[in-house]
Design a binder for these strands. Structure first.
Lengths: 339, 339
DNA sequence: CTGAAAGCGCTTACAG
DNA sequence: CTGAAAGCGCTTACAG
């Protein structure tokens, strides 16, 4: 429906070659006469010419688009990641195709296929579940991708994560030093390695203080049924350990739900707190909560950097089949102690 | 790098025509022999064939991709919209290219151009600013698009919005009936028509009760400098009208910032409240806040529905130049009175 | 039952 | 200084 190079060429009795050269700014280089150049530019403007990037991508074999898959775009953390990744990718001329797997493995697999079929040059993803055949298949195909926030220690992929264990360790240690000694830990999605690391930090902080974590203070929330599950878990903890004095939340969502629970039950919020990541109003509801701030901007920047490196590397040595070296980046959280 | 139709055709000594037909499930229809069909399928599997959707799009003249532009992907409301729009679009086989204009008009213009150049079949957008040349240009080109959340009353475009004035009117009227009579109104981005409507509702609720809103209770926050601006505005209101007894927030962000302000200043949260949209922890911080719940899922669904209608219509009658009729949909908020 | 050919809109090596 | 031609990977009308 729109004007194409050919339309301009026809209108001006030129070849598409010439038109293409002018319009992609190669007039000088290709020695196009200024007269021709101006006629082409003028005509393009008149016909309201817009290049068809699909055609260009098909020719070039690269789309200047990268795919981004998050587990849940509704989650504040991931939507912020999207934001920073978009801003960073843009700097290098890349657009994004963003998809939310909604924590559904089937969806995630599908999305990977669709994005690859749509010829994204690479993929950034925070994977949903346990080791995923699509990830293995991308590795086999030497397709550029970077995992972020979550990764699989047994797979040699690029990844960018936070220092899960260290951040957790330091938060919990801080609580212990503040003389809280019945610290409950709330966790979820425990199939994720990063979650195991967070719980690991909780445990090792105790061990280093010569303590053994009380099993009754461990609460695992079912991600499929947050609302009910956290109720059950907290009911149990408050029943079994009525003098619980602090909470370590392995994610901001758990903390948020906790506040809801306490309000419903009329429980005073007067505990010690520590949390990985925080949401907007936490500082008002629980001003003394200790928080590990996730370096969202850096996570995004690093993920994009590594991905683009991989893409470029692939372009250069298409022939070579040796897989490019993988990069694993671990960024540290900044801890805010507020109590 | 990947196997193409031609590779399969060569390997099997067939034409790409045949291969294409088999692989797009037209074996029956085109009367391909089962033997050939199976050989093709087998070979495709072996070569790990994946169709190149760019090539198909180029041929078909449609990409099955729609562009989505929001003012700020970091905002909870917009990220939820993205989520619902993605889920809805997916039902019809459309993928999304999501971009955040970050409230920057230049960026927005750019994004529109890029998305169109990338041949999205249509565009969904919550526009940033005052009437935008790109929108006019899309209208001229008969390019399918739908505005949501915000729109321009002077332009005949498709749009999906909420009943801004009615919702505001009812919220404020409710407060007045509860005998609050010094209701401050906080607003921002007042160049947006929808914002004017919200303020309009505040005013007409007063008028209907035979009251005239007190100018000193009006606060306009500069979107470029929220933090400082809201401080200035609230300082003034509390100084000029120390007995202010309620607040009407025209957006959830204003309410959120208000809570921050009060906490910093040590001001008790004991006011009457009404707000358009709410954030997660509002129900804990201000359980009596009256809220207009935005019908996010329906907004998304309607926007997609209208856009796909327009896309289809365009496909059918390419020749006809009469612009398709535009649809304006206004969805009502559900009001929750909690005090 | 299957194939040769043209076309979608670009880019670029090659030729003159 | 400019053009003819091939190719990216698909689809489809036409022919046999």
């Amino acid at each position: 429906m729109h004007a194409s190079l050919k339309d301009i060429a026809n209108a001006l009795n030129l070849s598409t070659t010439t038109v293409s050269w002018v319009l992609s700014g190669k007039s000088e280089e290709k020695g196009i006469s200024p007269a021709t150049r101006d006629r082409v530019k003028e005509c393009a403007r008149e016909l309201n010419y817009r290049p068809n990037l699909l055609a260009r991508s098909l020719h070039d074999g690269c789309s200047n688009t990268i795919g981004l898959i998050v587990p849940s775009i509704g989650d504040q953390f991931y939507s912020s990641m999207v934001r920073f990744i978009e801003l960073e990718a843009e700097k290098f001329g890349y657009a994004l195709m963003v998809c939310s797997s909604e924590n559904d493995r089937e969806r995630e697999n599908n999305i990977v296929d669709i994005l690859r079929a749509k010829q994204v040059d690479g993929l950034l993803m925070a994977p949903t579940k346990y080791s995923n055949e699509k990830i293995v298949s991308m590795m086999e195909d030497n397709f550029p991708f970077v995992l972020f926030d979550r990764y699989f220690p047994e797979l040699a992929t690029n990844y960018v994560i936070i220092d899960n264990e260290i951040a957790s360790y330091n938060l919990v240690k801080h609580l212990l030093e503040k003389c809280y000694n019945k610290i409950a830990v709330l966790t979820t999605n425990t199939h994720l390695y990063t979650m195991q690391l967070r719980y690991g930090g909780y445990c090792s902080a105790h061990e280093d203080m010569g303590l053994k974590p009380d099993e009754r203070l461990y609460g695992e929330v079912d991600p499929k049924d947050y609302e009910n599950s956290i109720e059950t878990v907290l009911d149990r903890i408050f029943r079994d350990v009525p003098d619980v004095d602090a909470f370590f939340f392995t994610t901001h969502v758990l903390a948020s739900r906790f506040f809801g629970y306490c309000t419903r039950k009329g429980i005073n919020l007067d505990f010690g707190y520590a949390c990985i990541h925080e949401e907007k109003l936490f500082n008002i509801l629980a001003p003394h909560m200790n928080v590990a701030q996730l370096p969202i901007a850096s996570l995004g920047r690093e993920a994009v950097r590594i991905l683009l490196q991989d893409i470029k590397r692939l372009k250069i040595k298409k022939k070579k089949t040796d897989p490019p070296p993988k990069q694993g980046v671990i960024l540290s959280c900044s801890l805010e102690f507020r109590d």
